[in-house]
Design a protein around this nucleic acid. Sequence first.
DNA 1: CGGGACTCCTGCCAGC
DNA 2: TGCTGGCAGGAGTCCC
Length: 302
Amino acid sequence: MPELPEVETVRRSLEPVLVGRRILKVDLARPGLRLPFPGHFAHRLQGRTVTALARRAKYLIARLSSGESWLIHLGMTGRFTIIAPNGRPHGLGEFYYETAADAVARGPHDHVAIDLEDGWRLIYTDPRRFGLMDLIAPGAEASHPLLKDLGIEPLGNEMNAQTLAKALRGKKAPLKAALLDQKIIAGLGNIYVCEALFRARLSPIAPAGSLVTRAGGPRLGLERLVGAIRAVLTEALAAGGSTLRDYAGADGAPGRFQQHFDVYDRAGEACTRPGCGGTVERLVQAGRSTFWCPRCQRRGDP
DNA sequence: CGGGACTCCTGCCAGC
DNA sequence: TGCTGGCAGGAGTCCC
């Protein structure tokens, strides 16, 4: 599920439940996820109140009354389920649990259960366990190894053609790979990179540096790319993200943006660009699928 | 150093 | 029907 729009959707779902509430009990079903849980993890969460729930790139950061920050990454398959005090899942759509009693009988991939004040409960589920959780000492967020090298926040003020030109200048890596690199832009994943490249009519195999002029400024294609990234993320966010194989929001409501994909997972289908007449193709780059229309996605300026 | 391959893990689905 | 291989929204680590 989770690229930036999905993580932000989860953040918005969790925020009203989590923020301002005390964590009463944390139950871990295993020693860790992709990384081991930090020492005394449950103990350091219990009794603390969540004062804010922020997002940086694809990370959720829950700030705690102890001054520590609870860092969460959903990996490929991580998700939260919110269980309301009456035992029923909160929100709309389909749910993993029907009652609080079911929630106690946890599934094999429910790794963390969090009991909050007022009878609210969160379950973290992650079949592939590519997610992670950590605790960050007070004041140490900026120097955390997983956060310190993150690049531009793609919906933030820094996201402009000038800044990106500086980051891409001289890069020989394919544009697709550069946009997936979280040290350059932090928050894009495979879906939204494919969709943004399509909208900007840029080739995923062009060298990233080819979008930068000799003098170091952005070519027109890079200007288009900045707009395309902002637009596709904004639209995806408004649709509650994309849901492919599981549930999107922690309130159980699936995202709807997958209905608007132009290229992702559409290999063999007709290009949606009016008058193009091309066909969407699948290509493997660095072990990951790229979906694109070779007919209308070309390198260059304009 | 930059860039690509490999790795972690489980589930699902197309194809035989 | 049942097995197998390939593929999946991520990203750190290794090696050239």
